[in-house]
């Protein structure tokens, strides 16, 4: 048997996990002295309440998961004779995957007959979500883990994500975006346009004045870089700004027609702790990132 794992940093929810047969790794965040584990400490993610808390000045923190966490998730699978395929968020954004590597190495030494594959989505949120669903499709179509890992080599670089950010103090604090220059953002209506590059790292690639132009620019990337856009899902991820989602949706539908498969995700709280509220990103299938 193959156990298909993903993690909450990929925006995948327990409901979707049940639908696609995915086992979920929960990535915690910390507010004050409280460690919150998504879908363990709450059933439904109340995104509006969470992002309102951030708007009110609270900045949660996150930390890499230890080796033992991965052992806890993976060992029962190996012990039961299952192999593992793990599709996860970008290794370029967290040290957690060093710990995962160590855990897997030890477990494979203990269970030498078992196998472990992983797909690094080199992304977060909507981008990882899109790739997780693609992998779910492939598994359903009968592809083997080896074939999926091969597929990922050429296809993961073909799922770009472009997004706009609003409150840059979150990004500055986590230091995970390069090229952010002056203090811009929602306060003056000039937002940075950020891109997750081929190494799974966030790079600021420009700025746009006003929400409409900013969203239009994201849609323009879909048009200019898109490849077989309608044959894949287009995923819009947002941190509690439904009105921008509607704007992006209508622009996308206008360009690509009503058959376009648009899914919407709310950026999970762990990643949201680094992105802040009012951000919007689009992930689509393209010639490159």
């Amino acid at each position: 048997m193959l156990s298909f794992f993903s993690d909450t940093d990929c925006d995948i929810t327990p409901r979707e996990c049940a639908e696609y047969g995915i086992k979920l790794i929960h990535m915690p965040y910390t507010v004050g002295d409280k460690v919150v584990t998504p879908y363990v400490d709450f059933e439904e993610f109340d995104s509006h309440a969470f992002y309102d808390m951030l708007r009110g000045g609270v900045i949660p923190t996150t930390s890499a998961q230890g080796e033992e966490v991965y052992v806890k998730y993976f060992e029962p699978e190996f012990a039961a004779g299952n192999d593992i395929l793990y599709v996860h968020f970008s290794s370029g954004m967290s040290n957690t995957f060093n710990n995962m590597d160590m855990a897997v190495k030890k477990l494979l030494a203990k269970y030498p007959e078992r196998k472990f594959w992983h797909v690094d989505t080199l992304g977060i949120s909507a981008e990882s979500y899109n790739i997780v669903l693609e992998v779910a499709d492939l598994l359903k179509a009968g592809k083997t883990p080896d074939e999926i890992v091969e597929w990922a080599k050429t296809e993961v670089p073909k799922f770009p994500m472009y997004f706009i950010a609003d409150d840059l103090k979150f990004f500055r604090r986590s230091g995970r975006v390069s090229g952010l220059a002056a203090t811009m953002g929602g306060l003056i209506g000039i937002r940075p346009v950020i891109h997750v590059d081929e190494n799974g790292k966030m790079v600021s690639i420009g700025k746009e004045t006003g929400r409409n132009k900013a969203v239009a620019r994201l849609v323009q990337y879909v048009e200019e870089l898109g490849e077989d856009v309608t044959a894949h899902r287009v995923v819009i991820g947002h941190s509690d700004c439904p009105e921008l989602v509607e704007l992006a949706k209508s622009m996308l539908l206008e360009k690509f027609g009503d058959s376009l498969r648009i899914l919407t995700t709310v950026v999970n709280p762990t990643i949201g702790s680094h992105c802040g509220p009012n951000g919007l990103g689009i992930c689509f299938h393209a010639i490159h990132r």
Binding site: A181, A182, T183, M184, L187, I188, I190
Partner: peptide
């Protein structure tokens, strides 16, 4: 003044 101050790049 408001826009000017917001665009001071302190890292430069």
């Amino acid at each position: 003044g408001y826009y000017g101050i917001a665009s001071v790049d302190r890292d430069n």
